[in-house]
Design a protein around this nucleic acid. Structure first.
Lengths: 337, 337
DNA sequence: TTGTAGGCGTTATCAG
DNA sequence: CTGATAACGCCTACAA
């Protein structure tokens, strides 16, 4: 079947293509009568405007490039889901690139996306900000062509917008709550040095500092892996390191902590409290279930798209936004609430 | 900065736009000399072909529509990750739509994707085949415009390709293994009636039948939710229903089964064996870790894209492919191997 | 309010 | 091997 175009419609409706184009774009100065006529003809012919032609003239594809490192990560999978839905609700399609963590792949993906004429870029996840500043140049360059929104990562610059969960405060408050219960041997497990990872860690450090406690020897790096977390804690335990709480940068690590406690015969939350991060389904896998910091991806994604829409509409928008997290209390802590 | 086009290149290289277009598309009949010249000019000017214009002429966008119901599902998140990567490796971008389970949303997504001029559609997940045949009409219609590949779902028809994990055999074999150990009270937990869900269940039923055992009262529907599975089993247990093994259609349910056993004081795998499905990270959350059927998403996705590329290349390809799964043995079973 | 005509950047079909 | 030139389908001044 031959695709039908604006000429076919104009012919069938007995008007010019200009008029068809006008009703198509809801332009003014079209009599209600012809408008209706054209609309009905389009319907009847099953006309669908050709995106290529439209794009050629308008220079826009109503398409947004969404980058993340890996959708098989529970958190990112949720982020992509919400982002895509919010975008589609606004009439935009999402072109996805799962780039992995390799810088070169990220750069390539951005290049391809720009070549596809996306209207904007959303970089989802703190992994897109490289510690070495010059490695972020490609993001700045991209921003010369289209607006770029960094979700959970921040970079200042022209046409660049950052929107983050306030991870620092979230962890700070969680650790404060543990301290308020008299816990002192609070350990922190983390898996990476992404900007968001650093903010979380900083929250922990500040809380400890404010309580006059040292933390250097209580921060432990480990792979993002249930077994790795379990192993790390088991070793510390064997060495006789005191420990009455574990806060982790990811729920998966918290699962490892719970498994460690079970094996070491430590009762949760009595002898060991555990707090995870992101409130993913992992938090519900264990017995008891895990108290976790909910970074509210849905809200974050909603605000991200809202921000982007404002930018695309030419309004000015905040270049930097911080959103609060909240604590979801479950069985691995014995908080009042 | 003004985008530079093929005319700029032709001018700077001292050739016609036709020649530029030729080297751009690797067409033959271009002298090595001019080819090099043009290439270097393109490089130097930083020329990027305009997708809209190219699409207008060629009618192709080098873009594939990828549909799934929800990327926040661990399995689907992995599927999308692999699909996107395989596609990009082949030079195609992926436009993602997370449609949810609602039929109307699926239809809308397909319509939008086709309007975007995608070159093909991949429907990921068995949720795209509706039990009521007429509800699949929109898929058939889509197939009139572009090839459609169903991953883990099957539908026969023109320009329609199905590629599935052989779920039935996978579950059949797993249940056989349990039976071989003398287990007889094998229960099956499932969450939906998708085509893949039905195949799994059928595998269970066949294995039981072949062993001369009844199964009707041992199949239990429950929400796709750790707590729901736990609850379902707890109730059966209270009612005194005998049970020495549980096979589930999803790892999450298996987690629920393990939690149930822990609470009911049943030792795993001695008194109760558990087998999950998909070998997701959930299988590693519990103590002991869960034996799970690995449907090998990565392999499935790889074959899916490979199949699609053949179709797009105009070669003929199998309209139906079945791929084997494999059992990953862990602590919730006491199989030899 | 409506129609005409030129342009957007490529590809492709012809001649040369 | 290379160069004009006509599509491709739509948008948008500019005219009427």
């Amino acid at each position: 079947m031959i695709p039908i175009n604006i000429y076919d419609v104009s012919k069938a409706a007995g008007v010019s293509i200009a008029t068809v184009s006008r009703v198509l774009n809801g332009a003014p100065h079209v009599s209600e009568k012809t408008r209706r006529k054209v609309l009905s003809v389009m319907e009847e012919l099953g006309y669908t405007p050709n995106m290529f032609a439209r794009g050629l003239g308008l220079g826009t594809s109503r398409t947004i490039g969404v980058l993340c490192t890996d959708t098989s990560d529970l958190y990112q999978g949720r982020a992509v889901f919400y982002l895509e839905n919010e975008l589609r609700a606004e009439g935009y399609m999402a072109i996805l690139c799962c780039t992995g963590r390799d810088l070169e792949n990220k750069q390539n993906a951005v290049r391809l996306l720009l070549a596809q004429k996306v209207d904007a870029l959303i970089l989802a996840g703190s992994r897109y900000i490289e510690p070495i500043e010059t490695n972020n140049a490609y993001i700045r360059e991209a921003a010369e062509q289209v607006p770029v929104v960094l979700m959970n990562g921040s970079l200042a610059g022209e046409n660049l917008y950052s929107i983050c969960c306030d991870d620092r405060s979230a962890v700070y408050n969680a650790v404060r709550a543990l301290l308020a219960q008299g816990r002192r041997q609070i350990h922190y497990l983390y898996t990476n040095h992404s900007s968001s990872g650093n903010k979380k860690r900083r929250g922990y450090e500040l809380a400890m500092e404010d309580a006059g406690l040292s933390f250097e020897e209580k921060e432990h790096y480990c792979r993002k892996d249930i077994a790795a977390a379990q192993e790390t804690l088991a070793q510390l335990h064997e060495q006789g390191v005191p420990m009455d709480a574990v806060v982790t940068s990811t729920d998966a690590l918290a699962v490892g902590a719970v498994k460690f406690a079970a094996r070491a015969g430590l009762s949760i939350p009595k002898q060991l409290a555990v707090i995870g991060y992101d409130d993913t389904q992992f938090a519900q896998c264990t017995q008891p279930e895990i108290t976790s910091i909910d970074s509210r991806v849905d809200y974050l994604c909603h605000m991200t798209v809202k921000l982007l829409m404002e930018v695309l509409a030419g309004q000015d928008a905040p270049t930097r936004t911080d959103l609060p997290a909240r604590l979801v209390v479950r069985g691995t802590t014995d908080f009042e609430n």
